Amino acid sequence: MARKMLADGELSQTSEEESQYDFDLFVIGAGSGGVRAARFSANYGAKVGICELPFHPISSEVIGGVGGTCVIRGCVPKKILVYGATFGGEIEDARNYGWEVNEQLDFNWKKLLQKKTNEINRLNEIYKRLLSNAGVKLLEGEGKIVGPNGVEVTQLDGTKLSYSVKHILIATGSRAHRLPIPGQVYSLLSFRMSKN
């Protein structure tokens, strides 16, 4: 039976009316915000479910991953790419400060991309483990609200799972999109807030 924390710090058992739901809280979207809300709610005794599109380093309408845009497709990969890009110039500059760099510098783009992919795979697993350790049930698929207390999760194979929930949190964040500006073809990726 689920527990809830009262304002004075005491725990109380939930009533029969409250236990009629599959989940006290269901979060649609397992980015940084959704994961944190789910974990903290579970830590306070709520029975929590969360859904996110199945993981892939490159997102689409049917794949995404726990950790969301910042961790998997935005901030973290960008920082790895920018950090990796700075070394060439710094090594060349080092020659002017007494460093002897005798070999010609070479850059392996595929190796840098693999490093980025390895890191986002690692972070995706960490986020999944954080949810599991907090007792949150993770469902991979597209979440949809089907009523005031109902959600439906469509898995990659088309299977639909329905749940009754007391509270629903929409934490879908943003989605990558190329901006319609001159020169956009030369960018790797541009972002805007999703209208969904």
Rank of each mutant, 00 (worst) to 15 (best):
V101H: 09
L123F: 00
W109V: 14
A46Q: 04
A7P: 14
E103T: 12
I28M: 03
E100R: 13
M1Q: 08
E142F: 13
T117M: 03
Y44I: 08
G34Y: 06
N196R: 13
P148E: 10
G143K: 06
E142T: 08
M1R: 06
I28G: 03
T14L: 13
L188A: 10
L189T: 07
A94Q: 08
I50L: 15
D24G: 09
A46M: 12
E142D: 04
E100C: 09
A2M: 04
I126F: 07
V66L: 01
V101R: 06
F40Q: 12
L156H: 04
Y163R: 03
T14W: 00
K166P: 04
Y44S: 13
D157Q: 07
G84N: 05
G88V: 06
N108T: 05
Y83L: 11
N43I: 11
G150S: 08
R192D: 10
G158C: 09
I63V: 15
L105D: 07
G31V: 03
V185N: 11
S190M: 07
K110V: 08
D24A: 08
I181P: 04
I170Q: 02
A37T: 12
S187R: 01
V76N: 15
G9E: 11
Q20E: 13
R95Q: 13
V76K: 02
Q114S: 13
D22M: 04
A176R: 04
